[in-house]
Nucleic acid binder design. Structure first.
Length: 639
DNA sequence: CCCTTTAAGCTTTTT
DNA sequence: GCTTAAAGGG
C-alpha cells in the first residue's frame, strides 16, 4: 500500500512540487501555507482525486470542502470535475461556509426547541442595516432603566452583541444590549405581523452551533458522512465559523486539511481570526507545511515578493519562480506624478503603447486601487477613452456575473449566435434536462422533442433580436430574456435555486443585467454579451476584489497616505493588502504616487502624500529590492 | 446662531 | 486618520 501510494501521480499531466505531493499523501490533519500562485486549487483538486481513487475516502463517505466565497467553492468543484471526472466529483461537496450551515439548519430544523425554531420559509437578511429599522419598528416594550432605549443604543455595538450571542438567550433589564438582543432574536426567529421570520448568516451559524451541541447524534452523523474536510482560505476564518468546525470535527476521525496564506490575511476588520492557523495547528494537532513554488509571476517579480514578504508578520520562506521564464523576466516600477491628471494621461499613453507593441488585450491589464475605484481611477478612465480603450469598475459586474440565473441566460444567448458549438449545446441540454426532467428516467427522455424546443427558443431569440426596436431596447431585451425564463419555467428555476424564491430577487437580477448592457444601434448579440462579460474592458477594482486573480500587467494607482488611511492603526492588514496587490501581476506591475489628487468627492484637489500615516515605508521596501522610482513630472500635459 | 461633540464612511462575504 | 453631516448645548 505504501509503495503503491508513492507511485501515485496527479492526473492530467499536472506537475506538483514535492511539498504539495507530500501534503496530498499526508494521512493526518495538516495545515498548508500556500502563497500567491502556489496552485492551491490544483493541490486540493488532486488531493480529492487521490483520496477517492485510492479508496482512502471509502464509499459512501465523502469529502467536504469549505470556502468563503461562492466563486472559490464553484471553482474547486469544477477543477475536481475536470481533473477526475464524474465518479470523483459526485463524492466531493464544495460549498461556502454559509451554504454549509444553512443546509444543516434546514435539514435539522425539527431538532431545534420550539422557541428557537425559525419558520420553514424564513428570509435571509443580507443588509444588516435593515435590522436597525426592525428593532425600532417592532420592539415596542419599555425598559425601566432606559426610558428612551430606542435612541440610546449604538447600532454597531448591537451588531457585535448579536454575533456574540450564546444560546440559550439570557437578558438583563439593566444591560441595554442583552435586553434588546434577546427581544430581537425572538422577534427575528418567529416574525411579527408583516415581519417575516428572518435570519442573518451569523445567526444561522449560532443556531446550528446550538443545535449540534444539543444533539450529539447529528454531530456523529456528520463525522460519519465526511471522512475528509478541506478548508480553503483558512486565514479568513471567523470566530463563529471556527467554533462550528470544532464542534463538529474536533476529536473525530475526520481528517482536516487547511490551506491558506497568512500573508494574504486582509479580512481582519470583517471578523477573521487573528491567528487561525496557529489555533488550528494546536487544537487539531496538525502538521504544518509550506509550498515553495510560484507558478504565476516572473522571476524578478517573485524576487521582489520574497523581499517584501520578509517585512510581513509571518514565517518567511523564499519562494521559487516556476515556469517558462528567463532569469530577468518581469518589470516592477514606481512612477511619481505631480497630479492625477498627468498621471492619468501618461498611464493611458503607456497602456495604449503596450497594447500595440506587445499585442495585449484589455483583459491582460488590471487597474487596482486601495479603495474608492471611481475616485482613484476616474481620471484614467477618461484618458483611456481618448485612446478608444474601454475600462470599467468591475464591482458593478462581479456579483451579477456570478449569479446562476445570469450565467444561464448568458449561455442561451451565446448559443443563439454560436450555433456550431457542440460543447455549449451539450452543456445546455444537460442543464435543461437536469432542471426540467431531473426525475425522469434516462431511457424515457424524449431527446428529439427537447432539442426541438430548444431550437425553437433559439430561433425566437434571433428573430426577436433582429427585429429589435432600437429606441426601446430595454423593454425588447427584457422580452427576450423572459422567453428564456418561460422556457425554463420560473417555478423550476426557483426550485433549482431556492434563493430566487425570495421576494423579487429573480426579477431584480434580470433588470440589473439589462441596465448594464451596452447597446448602441447595430450592436450584435455577440458584441453585447462579450462586452457584458468584460471581454473588451480593462477591469478596475480594489485590492480586496483582486484577491485570487492574476493579470499580465497590473497598474496600482495611488500608493499614498490618503488611500491607506488605516495604515497607522491596521499596519499589518494594510501591508498584507499591499502584498496581495503586488502578487497579482504575472509580468509587469507599476505603482503610481501622485502629490495631488481629487479625493474629496467634492471636487477639492488635495495633497495626498503627506499626512501622518506615511505609507512610504512600503515603497522603501520595494526600492531596497531594486525597484526603480521614476519621476514622470517633466512631461508636459494639457491640464 | 455658533460652537463642540458624535457618528459614519472608507476596504466585504454569504442562499 | 481624515472628512463631513447631524445632533446637542448654551
Amino acid at each position: 500500500m505504501n509503495n503503491e501510494a508513492n507511485e501515485w501521480i496527479p492526473s492530467y499531466g499536472v506537475v506538483l512540487e514535492d511539498a504539495a505531493l507530500q501534503a496530498i499523501k499526508y494521512p493526518k490533519n495538516i495545515s498548508i501555507a500556500a502563497g500567491p500562485g502556489a496552485g492551491k486549487t490544483e493541490l486540493l483538486a488532486h488531493k480529492a482525486g487521490y483520496l477517492i481513487e485510492r479508496n482512502i475516502c471509502p464509499y459512501p463517505k465523502k469529502i467536504l470542502a469549505i470556502s468563503f466565497k461562492s466563486d472559490a467553492a464553484k471553482n474547486l468543484q469544477e477543477r475536481v470535475q475536470k481533473r477526475y471526472g464524474k465518479d470523483v466529483v459526485s463524492r466531493f461537496e464544495s460549498k461556502t461556509f454559509d451554504a454549509f450551515s444553512k443546509g444543516l439548519l434546514e435539514q435539522f430544523l425539527h431538532a431545534l426547541p420550539e422557541k428557537y425554531k425559525p419558520k420553514k420559509d424564513y428570509k435571509i437578511i443580507l443588509n444588516e442595516r435593515t435590522i436597525d429599522d426592525i428593532v425600532k419598528g417592532y420592539i415596542t416594550e419599555t425598559n425601566l432603566h432606559y426610558h428612551n432605549w430606542q435612541n440610546e443604543y449604538n447600532f454597531n455595538q448591537l451588531m457585535r452583541t448579536i454575533k456574540s450571542t450564546n444560546l440559550p438567550l439570557v437578558s438583563f433589564e439593566n444591560d441595554l444590549y442583552s435586553w434588546i438582543n434577546e427581544r430581537l432574536w425572538r422577534l427575528l426567529i418567529k416574525g411579527k405581523g408583516d415581519l417575516k421570520s428572518s435570519l442573518t448568516f451569523p445567526m444561522i451559524s449560532i443556531l446550528v452551533e446550538y443545535l449540534l451541541n444539543q444533539n450529539p447524534l447529528i454531530v456523529n452523523a456528520l463525522r460519519a458522512t465526511y471522512s475528509h474536510v478541506f478548508l480553503d482560505e483558512f486565514q479568513d476564518t471567523t470566530y463563529l465559523q471556527y467554533n462550528l468546525l470544532k464542534t463538529i470535527f474536533l476529536g473525530s476521525d475526520t481528517i482536516l486539511t487547511a490551506v491558506g496564506d497568512n500573508k494574504q490575511r486582509i479580512m481582519g476588520w470583517a471578523g477573521a481570526l487573528p491567528n487561525a492557523f496557529e489555533v488550528f495547528t494546536i487544537d487539531f494537532n496538525a502538521k504544518q507545511t509550506t509550498l515553495l513554488c510560484n507558478f504565476r509571476s516572473a522571476p524578478k517579480l517573485v524576487y521582489i515578493q520574497n523581499v517584501f514578504s520578509q517585512t510581513l508578520n509571518d514565517i518567511s520562506v523564499n519562494v521559487q519562480a516556476t515556469g517558462n521564464w528567463n532569469e530577468h523576466d518581469g518589470t516592477c516600477e514606481i512612477w511619481n506624478f505631480e497630479n492625477h491628471i498627468s498621471e492619468a494621461s501618461i498611464l493611458a499613453q503607456n497602456i495604449s503603447e503596450w497594447m500595440n507593441e506587445e499585442n495585449l488585450t484589455p483583459k491582460d491589464f488590471c487597474i487596482i486601487v486601495k479603495q474608492q475605484e471611481k475616485i482613484y481611477a476616474g481620471a484614467i478612465m477618461t484618458e483611456l477613452a481618448k485612446f478608444n480603450i474601454r475600462s470599467r469598475v468591475e464591482k458593478d459586474f462581479q456579483d451579477l456575473l456570478s449569479e446562476e440565473i445570469i450565467l444561464l441566460l448568458i449561455k442561451f444567448l451565446e448559443l443563439s449566435y454560436k450555433e456550431k458549438s457542440p460543447e455549449l449545446w451539450l452543456n445546455i441540454i444537460d442543464e435543461v434536462i437536469e432542471m426540467k426532467y431531473g426525475d425522469i428516467e434516462f431511457q424515457r427522455l424524449n431527446y428529439i422533442s427537447i432539442e426541438k424546443e430548444l431550437v425553437n427558443l433559439l430561433q425566437e431569440i434571433k428573430t426577436c433580436f433582429s427585429n429589435l426596436d432600437e429606441s426601446n431596447f430595454n423593454v425588447c431585451f427584457e422580452s427576450i430574456l423572459m422567453k428564456i425564463v418561460d422556457y425554463l419555467d420560473e417555478d423550476i428555476i426557483k426550485s433549482t435555486y431556492p434563493k430566487y424564491s425570495q421576494g423579487n430577487y429573480l426579477n431584480e437580477q434580470i433588470q440589473k443585467m439589462i441596465s448594464r448592457l451596452n447597446y448602441e444601434n447595430g450592436t450584435s448579440m455577440e458584441e453585447l454579451i462579450c462586452d457584458f462579460c468584460g471581454d473588451y474592458s480593462i477591469p478596475i477594482m480594489t485590492i480586496h476584489k483582486s484577491k485570487g486573480l492574476e493579470y499580465q500587467t497590473v497598474i496600482f494607482i495611488g500608493v499614498e497616505d490618503a488611500a491607506f488611511w488605516s495604515f497607522s492603526t491596521q499596519r499589518e492588514a494594510d501591508k498584507n493588502a499591499f502584498f496581495v496587490a503586488l502578487s497579482r501581476a504575472k509580468e509587469r506591475i507599476i505603482f503610481t504616487v501622485s502629490n495631488q489628487r481629487d479625493v474629496s468627492r467634492f471636487g477639492k484637489i488635495e495633497n495626498t502624500r503627506q499626512t501622518t500615516c506615511n505609507i512610504s515605508e512600503l515603497l522603501q521596501t520595494l526600492e531596497n529590492a531594486g525597484v526603480p522610482t521614476i519621476n514622470k513630472n517633466k512631461v508636459t500635459t494639457n491640464v
